[in-house]
Every structure is written in C-alpha cells, then in structure tokens.
C-alpha cells in the first residue's frame, strides 16, 4: 500500500541533438556519424548508451551521454557537409524521466492517449502527457519519457501523481 506503483526518476546528464535532413539521402551518413542505424518509422535504435529516435519523416533525435554531445555535433556537421540539413543541440531544451517498475505501464496509461502495451520493444511514441508534449520509449524495466525543460516540474508532478500508492489500474 505504501509504495508507489512505479518509480519516477529524473534523468540528468543526457545530451540530445535534433537532426533534420532528407533521411533517404543522408541516412547512411548520419548512421555512420553517430554509430547507430537509422531507425524505422516510429522506432528508436540503441546501443545501450546512445539512442537514435525517429521523430518525423525528416527528423531524428540523437540521445547520448551529455559529454559526448559536442563531438557528436561536429561529427554530424562534417558528415552532412554540403547536405541540406539542420543539426542543433537541444540538450538544454528537454527534461527526461525514467518510469520503472512492474506497473510503469499504468503510469503511462494515466497520462498519455497512447496504448503503452501496444508499443513495440523498439517503439518511440510522440504524444502528450496530460497537457504537455512528450515522447516515450522502452528502457530496461519501464519507460523513458521526455518533454520540454520548462515543464519539468509539471511532468515530474503528474508522473508522481500517476504513480501514487494503491492506484494500479488492474481491477480491484
């Protein structure tokens, strides 16, 4: 009773880079520069440390350890030199939370109009969490959810509210 139905942990130290380009043309160069395959539509590829998520038909999000951001930015700039592309550091524009535990799905289901149980193992879903934009994908033992930096307090609050003890979604 006393335990939250899932653990909500703010994630620090993440770097994020938005890459906008013609993926069919520049995909190989991007893959080589970041060391990850270009994800299929609505998927995320990952090597455990970095992830490359499909955000839109001409947009990818590279998620990586913060200290690797500068190097990755310049690798991408070099790889896409001459290509019509936009590469920007958005590390400071985002807030990230890990929602873990056996009932992490319930927390997502309370906030997002998207079925977390239907998310493939490598799926990335852009949607909203309550009243703000968010995206989530699977991590070991749960989900990682990202939103905007300015709403970090709000996101933390609604995630913790959704995880309050005794509020599992399984029928009572």
């Amino acid at each position: 009773m006393a335990d939250a139905i899932a653990t909500v942990t703010p994630v620090e130290g993440l770097g994020m880079i938005t890459i906008r380009a013609d993926l069919s043309r520049a995909g190989d160069a991007i893959a080589e520069a970041v060391g990850l395959a270009v994800p299929a539509v609505t998927r995320i590829t990952s090597d455990g440390s970095r992830g490359l998520g499909w955000m839109s038909p001409d947009e990818l999000l590279l998620v990586l350890p913060r200290q690797e951001t500068a190097e990755a930015l310049s690798m991408l700039e070099q790889a896409l030199a001459g290509e019509h592309a936009l590469i920007v550091d958005v590390s400071d524009a985002r807030a990230a939370f890990d929602v873990t535990g056996p009932h992490a799905e319930d927390v997502i289901a309370k906030l997002c109009p998207a079925d977390p149980t239907a998310l493939p193992p490598d799926g990335l879903r852009r949607t909203r969490a309550a009243q703000t934009a968010a995206a989530f994908w699977r991590i070991e033992g749960g989900f990682r959810l990202i939103g905007f930096r300015s709403t970090a307090d709000y996101l933390g609050l609604i995630l913790r509210n959704a995880a309050i003890p005794g509020s599992r979604l399984a029928p009572r």
Binding site: K110, A130, Q131, F148, S150, T151, A152, D153, Y154, L157
Partner: peptide, 15 residues
C-alpha cells in the same frame, strides 16, 4: 481528475 492545484495546468518555468 489530476488537473488541479499545482497540476491544474503545465506551469512553464525558465532557468
């Protein structure tokens, strides 16, 4: 539901 008090609306905060 949850949208009340502090969670009534997303409050955007600068650094």
């Amino acid at each position: 539901a949850d949208a009340r008090g502090e969670a009534f609306q997303p409050l955007r905060k600068t650094a």
